[in-house]
Amino acid sequence: MKMIAGLGNPGAEYAQTKHNVGFMLVDALAAYLGAGTWREDFSAYIAEVRIGSEKVFLVKPQTYMNSSGESLGPMLSYYKMDCSDLIVVHDDMDIPAGTTRIRKKGGSGGHNGIKSIIAHTGSENFVRVRIGIGRPPAGWTVIHHVLAPFSAEDAAHIRAAIDFLLPAVTCIVQEGADLAMNRYNPQRKKNQKQEGRHEAEQETSSAAAPE
């Protein structure tokens, strides 16, 4: 079994806010995978799907973001699931809006929802799917930023990011985080090296060409 948990805040007033991109992706996954009815348990909304041979729980904790672990910790324990079976989708201010990153494990990065999960599971060994929301504009607090809706431009980037991540998340479940990171994470350093080599080859070719 696997668990895909999107982080966010419950209530209609938060539904379209930046902090709720985790809920947005899990809702999109439910539609993409043909999930059945949502049920309430473990202070969360839960739907079940199959990805290949895996039974997968789609989970939206209803404890508010900063207490996400209060829902996910007991659920993992009840179903005797290891933290390595957990995939958490959450917002990330440290990357631009609509940018995505898959990370196999690690610390909280200052994200309170991730802090809560680590505190209630005692482990950092779970996959994170990060969706960028960008930094607060000048004069805005972090709270104001994460609890505000996206601009029209950024909303389009987020929709594209969610569409991009649907096969990425199913890849994590079926083929593992390492392959998914290699396939779906940006390859900037590799591309920059290739561009550098290409430029060097052009310079060498230009220098060798007759005038």
Rank of each mutant, 00 (worst) to 15 (best):
M1V: 14
A5M: 03
N9E: 09
A12H: 10
K18P: 13
N20F: 08
V21G: 08
G22P: 02
M24C: 07
V26H: 01
Y32K: 11
T37G: 11
T37W: 12
T37S: 14
W38I: 11
F42R: 06
I46F: 03
R50Q: 11
S53D: 14
K55Y: 09
F57L: 12
F57M: 09
F57V: 06
L58N: 09
Q62P: 13
S67V: 01
G69C: 01
G69A: 02
S71V: 00
P74K: 01
L76M: 05
Y79G: 04
V88A: 03
D91M: 10
D92P: 09
M93S: 12
R101L: 06
R101H: 05
I102L: 11
K105E: 10
G106K: 08
G109A: 07
G113W: 00
I114T: 01
S116E: 02
I117A: 01
N125G: 04
V129R: 00
I131P: 02
P137G: 14
H145I: 09
H145Y: 15
V146E: 06
L147F: 13
F150R: 06
A152W: 08
H157I: 10
A160P: 03
A160H: 13
F164H: 10
L166Y: 07
A168G: 02
Q174R: 05
E175R: 15
L179N: 07
P186E: 07
K189G: 15
K190E: 05
K190M: 07
N191Y: 13
A200W: 10
A200S: 13
E201W: 12
P210F: 10
